[in-house]
Structures are given as structure tokens and as C-alpha cells.
């Protein structure tokens, strides 16, 4: 993390057009990507949970949704902070922000559903169903918003990227930031997962005592 922070704030060159505000890009993009990456995890774990009824799968899905919500919150805030100086507005309804916001709403709905549903397997099943529907839905949200309107910059890294749209040191900076935040993402999910396991153990013990 320290290396990443050094790279973001000191090593990478300042953008010619956007200036210093462009540095938020190295936090905004990984947060957005990883926040959305939680969807496939939620989808796979929820489906497996419904088929096998293994509590472990439910706990992973729950933890991924929590961390996904956290990362998307940061992506939304940094996105708005960056959008204001570069585009002059806090918010635009182009595909990526639309997808991010709707996904964030789905995660919040997922977490609220867990809080409001009956304890035990019933609540877990409800959440798994919402997890599956929400994950599949995110594809449609993106498609719909894409057909609807499009002003957001195109993908700059990855298979869809156009060549030379990023300075090479900026690209390295972004990839290292992505790697560092991926590690943080995985670590946080594992942490939440182990906390949840302990919680379940305590609940079981309490149940046995009573």
C-alpha cells in the first residue's frame, strides 16, 4: 500500500490537461473495478449456496457484498470529486457511473434485506436470490445505460483498451494500484468471512446453552 501511495502521489507524472486532480484516477478506477468484481463472487456463491445449502458459501457472498458496497461507495465519492474539476459537474448519467450507482443500490438493498429478514437460513436464502438477480441485472443496467447515452472515457486498460491512450508510467501506476487494492479487497473479504464464522460459532454456542 505504501508503495502504491508513493507511486500515486509522487512517481506518476501529472496529467497535462487534467492536472493534479487526475491522480484520484489511481484510486477511483481500482475501487470501481473491484467493487463490481464482487458481483461475480456474490453470484457464484449465492447459486452454490442455493444448490448445496453450505453456510460457508452464504458467508462468502455476504462478505463480498459488504466489501463491494464499501469499494463502490469510495468509487462513487472519488468519481464525483474527479468529475467536478474535469467535466464541471458532480454527476453524469453515462454508463459507468449509472452502473456503479445502481450496483451500489443493489448492494445496499442486499445488506438491508439481511438486516430485515428472519434470522437463519430463511434470510440467507432471500439474500442469495437477491444476489443472483442483482448480479444478472447489472449486465442489463450496463447495456441499457450504454445504449442510452455515453460520455464516459472508454476503457484505458484491459482487452477493450485503445492503444497509447495512457502514458506508460501512468499505466504502470494504475496496474500496481489495481494489484494493491485487489490484495486489500481479498484481505478484507477474508477478514469479514472469518469474523462471520466466529459470530456463527457464538450463536451456535448460545443456542446450545439455552
Amino acid at each position: 500500500m505504501t508503495v502504491t501511495m508513493y507511486l500515486i502521489f509522487i512517481w506518476v507524472p501529472t496529467d497535462d490537461v487534467l492536472g493534479i486532480s487526475q491522480r484520484i484516477f489511481y484510486i477511483h478506477v481500482p475501487m470501481g473495478i473491484l467493487g463490481l468484481m464482487a458481483f461475480p463472487i456474490v453470484f457464484i456463491c449465492s447459486t452454490t449456496y442455493l444448490i448445496t445449502k453450505k453456510d460457508t458459501m452464504d458467508s462468502i457472498a455476504y462478505s463480498a457484498a459488504e466489501i463491494g458496497a464499501l469499494f463502490l461507495t469510495i468509487a462513487l465519492i472519488t468519481g464525483m470529486l474527479w468529475s467536478k474539476p474535469s467535466w464541471g459537474v458532480w454527476w453524469t448519467w453515462s454508463p459507468q457511473p449509472t452502473l456503479t450507482l445502481v450496483s451500489w443500490l443493489v448492494y445496499i438493498a442486499y445488506l438491508m434485506l439481511r438486516a430485515y429478514s428472519p434470522r437463519g437460513s430463511q434470510g440467507a436464502k432471500y439474500a442469495a436470490v437477491l444476489g443472483i438477480i442483482g448480479s444478472v441485472n447489472s449486465i442489463f443496467v450496463y447495456l441499457a445505460a450504454k445504449i442510452w447515452r455515453d460520455v464516459h472515457p472508454e476503457a484505458v486498460v484491459g482487452p477493450l483498451a485503445e492503444n497509447d491512450s495512457l502514458d506508460s508510467s501512468m499505466r504502470i501506476g494504475l496496474l500496481i494500484a489495481l494489484l494493491a487494492f485487489s490484495l486489500l479487497f481479498t484481505y478484507l473479504i477474508t477478514l469479514r468471512f472469518s469474523t462471520r464464522k466466529t459470530e456463527q460459532k457464538i450463536e451456535r454456542l448460545q443456542y446450545e446453552i439455552n
Binding site: 430485515y116 432471500y126 438477480i133 442483482g134
Partner: peptide, 19 residues
């Protein structure tokens, strides 16, 4: 079967129906 179901339905349903 949820607590405060009248509020929970729109919260769960609206983000999904956006497309």
C-alpha cells in the same frame, strides 16, 4: 415475510427494474 415489507419491496425492487 420481512419486517416493514411495504418499504422493503420498493427498496429491493426499484434498482433491479431500472433497465
Amino acid at each position: 415475510n420481512l419486517r416493514s415489507k411495504d418499504i422493503m419491496l420498493p427498496i429491493l425492487f426499484l434498482p433491479i427494474v431500472i433497465p
